[in-house]
Measured scan of single mutants.
Amino acid sequence: GATAVSEWTEYKTADGKTYYYNNRTLESTFEKPQELK
């Protein structure tokens, strides 16, 4: 079976905060997504 690849990509803001962006739902969040835990 195919492994589900996380759609979340980790980015940093200009002031160094980490956030996560989902390229399928176009959602962004500062909290670590469930799929990455």
Results as ranks from 00 to 15, higher is better:
2 A>V: 14
5 V>H: 13
27 E>S: 05
34 Q>E: 15
35 E>M: 06
26 L>H: 15
5 V>P: 11
33 P>C: 03
21 Y>F: 15
25 T>F: 02
30 F>M: 08
16 G>I: 00
34 Q>N: 14
2 A>Y: 11
34 Q>S: 14
9 T>S: 12
10 E>K: 05
22 N>D: 01
13 T>Q: 04
14 A>V: 11
9 T>I: 13
27 E>P: 00
7 E>F: 07
6 S>I: 08
16 G>N: 04
13 T>E: 03
15 D>T: 06
2 A>P: 12
4 A>D: 12
1 G>R: 09
14 A>K: 11
23 N>R: 11
29 T>Q: 07
8 W>H: 00
25 T>G: 01
11 Y>P: 00
25 T>I: 01
20 Y>H: 00
28 S>D: 03
12 K>M: 10
34 Q>A: 15
5 V>Q: 12
24 R>G: 04
17 K>P: 01
1 G>N: 14
25 T>P: 01
4 A>W: 10
32 K>S: 04
13 T>G: 08
2 A>R: 08
21 Y>L: 08
30 F>R: 04
14 A>M: 09
12 K>P: 02
23 N>H: 14
36 L>R: 04
20 Y>F: 06
19 Y>L: 09
14 A>Q: 09
28 S>G: 09
22 N>G: 00
7 E>H: 08
8 W>S: 01
29 T>L: 05
4 A>G: 12
24 R>S: 08
22 N>K: 01
6 S>R: 09
11 Y>E: 06
25 T>H: 01
18 T>E: 03
32 K>L: 10
26 L>Y: 13
17 K>G: 04
4 A>V: 14
22 N>Y: 01
12 K>F: 07
29 T>H: 04
3 T>Q: 13
13 T>R: 04
9 T>L: 08
23 N>D: 06
16 G>E: 03
13 T>D: 11
36 L>N: 07
18 T>S: 09
5 V>N: 11
5 V>D: 12
5 V>W: 14
15 D>V: 03
31 E>Q: 10
30 F>E: 07
26 L>I: 02
6 S>T: 10
24 R>N: 08
11 Y>N: 04
14 A>L: 10
1 G>L: 14
17 K>F: 08
26 L>M: 15
31 E>I: 14
21 Y>T: 06
17 K>Y: 08
12 K>R: 14
9 T>H: 08
35 E>S: 11
26 L>E: 11
24 R>T: 10
28 S>V: 15
4 A>N: 13
7 E>V: 08
36 L>H: 08
28 S>T: 15
36 L>D: 07
3 T>K: 06
37 K>M: 15
12 K>V: 12
6 S>F: 08
27 E>I: 08
24 R>L: 13
29 T>D: 02
19 Y>E: 03
21 Y>W: 10
10 E>A: 09
27 E>T: 07
7 E>Y: 08
23 N>E: 10
8 W>Q: 00
18 T>G: 02
16 G>A: 01
1 G>P: 13
27 E>M: 09
32 K>I: 10
28 S>M: 15
